[in-house]
Amino acid sequence: MISGLCFYVASKHYIAIGTDVISYNLLFSSKEHMHPWEDIEKVIYKPVSSSDNRWQYEFFFNDGEKLIVIENGYIAEIKYLIINRLKDENINLKSS
């Protein structure tokens, strides 16, 4: 029963980055978020922490929402899609 509950909770959390929208449902949230790329105010690309070698994207949307995506193997594969889509929308990728 506990493993079933863990699977259910994990399946509710997702982030999908597509060519038209970024959609996500955060853990323990019942609200699905969908933002077209045009709704992005800015994106910051920075290290997760000073002691961690991983990097993260912080997406800030016009409605005040913020999404943090930690770069992993899947995100690394679509990194150029993200960069090119941001260029198409004239959004600078800021590094810090």
Results as ranks from 00 to 15, higher is better:
Leu27Phe: 13
Lys87Glu: 11
Asn84Trp: 02
Tyr14Ser: 01
Glu77Leu: 08
Ile22His: 04
Glu71Lys: 07
Ala10Asp: 12
Tyr74Phe: 04
Ser11Gln: 09
Ser49Glu: 02
His35Tyr: 15
Asn92Ser: 15
His33Leu: 11
Ala16Trp: 00
Arg54Ala: 09
Tyr8Met: 12
Lys31Gly: 00
Ile40Cys: 04
Ala16Thr: 01
Lys46Trp: 06
Pro36Lys: 12
His13Ile: 03
His13Pro: 00
Ile22Arg: 06
Lys79Gln: 13
Lys12Asp: 06
His35Met: 15
Ser23Glu: 12
Ser50Asn: 09
Tyr8Gly: 05
Met1Phe: 09
Ile2Asp: 14
Ser29Asn: 09
Trp55Gly: 02
Asn53Pro: 10
Phe60Leu: 11
Asp20Glu: 14
Ile44His: 12
Trp55Pro: 00
Glu89Leu: 04
Asp63Trp: 15
Trp55Met: 15
Arg54Tyr: 11
Phe59Pro: 06
Phe7Leu: 12
Tyr8Trp: 14
Asn62Val: 14
Ile40Pro: 02
Ile83Ser: 01
Leu86Gln: 07
Phe28Trp: 09
Ile22Asn: 03
Asn25His: 05
Gly64Gln: 08
Leu86Cys: 08
Leu27Tyr: 12
Tyr8Asn: 11
Tyr80Ala: 05
Tyr80Arg: 06
Ile17Val: 04
Val9Trp: 10
Glu38Gly: 04
Glu77Val: 00
Ser49Ala: 15
Ser49Asn: 07
Ile78Ser: 00
Ala10Ile: 02
Leu86Glu: 10
Ile44Cys: 15
Ile40Ala: 03
Glu41Met: 13
Lys31Phe: 12
Ser30Cys: 01
Arg54Asn: 07
Trp55Leu: 07
Val9Glu: 07
Ala16Cys: 07
Asn53Trp: 13
Asn84Ser: 14
Thr19Phe: 03
Val48Lys: 13
Lys94Pro: 00
Lys31Trp: 07
Ile68Arg: 10
His33Ser: 10
Leu5Ala: 14
Asp52His: 06
Leu86Thr: 03
Ser95Gly: 08
Ala16Asp: 08
Ile91Ser: 01
Phe28Asp: 02
Phe61Pro: 04
